[in-house]
């Protein structure tokens, strides 16, 4: 079990967003290992791969080709070995109903993509930190709900 760094995964079909994401984590200077994926199918293949080290936190964009974020969420929630992954929906604005629905279907975090790089960094820091709290303090993962 890797203790000192946090494994992050992102699935987003937008190149710029992937870039922002990676840059943000780089600037955060938290010990993280970040992998990015460009669509849902690729992500699922990655997760199911036997040699994959499962991420602590998985960021899912909702609008992706081949398999969108919501479908991935439903699939992941069905697999027991993925239970420890904190799932963060990382998307452009959705309606209140849709946001609540992602939580109901098992997402832990919902992040509305910010339009400012600093905000992005803050958000990612917050998410990682809070998740770390849950992880280290043995808080009830089921109650882990965060909306930013």
């Amino acid at each position: 079990m890797q203790k000192n760094h946090i494994t992050i995964a992102l699935a987003d079909d937008d190149e710029d967003d992937r870039l922002f994401f990676e840059d943000a984590f780089e600037e955060l200077k938290i010990n993280t290992v970040v992998t990015t994926h460009c669509d849902g199918e690729e992500l699922m293949n990655f997760l199911h791969h036997p040699e994959t080290i499962l991420p602590n936190i998985l960021f899912l964009d909702l609008n992706m080709p081949k398999k969108n974020g919501f479908e991935c969420l439903l699939e992941i929630k069905k697999v027991e070995k993925f239970n420890d992954i904190a799932i963060a929906i990382y998307s452009t604005s959705s309606s209140e109903e849709d946001v609540e629905n992602t939580f109901v279907q098992g997402a832990n975090i919902y992040i509305k993509k910010p339009s400012d790089f600093d905000t992005l960094k803050k958000i990612l820091r917050e998410v990682v930190t809070l998740n770390w709290q849950y992880h280290t303090s043995r808080l009830n993962k089921d109650n882990f709900l965060l909306r930013m």
């Binding site: 939580f103 109901v104 919902y110 709900l145 909306r147």
Partner: peptide
């Protein structure tokens, strides 16, 4: 958390 207590309640119930 970013959500209200009643929203939280609602989500867990659903």
């Amino acid at each position: 958390t970013g959500i209200t207590p009643s929203a939280f309640q609602r989500i867990i119930a659903k």
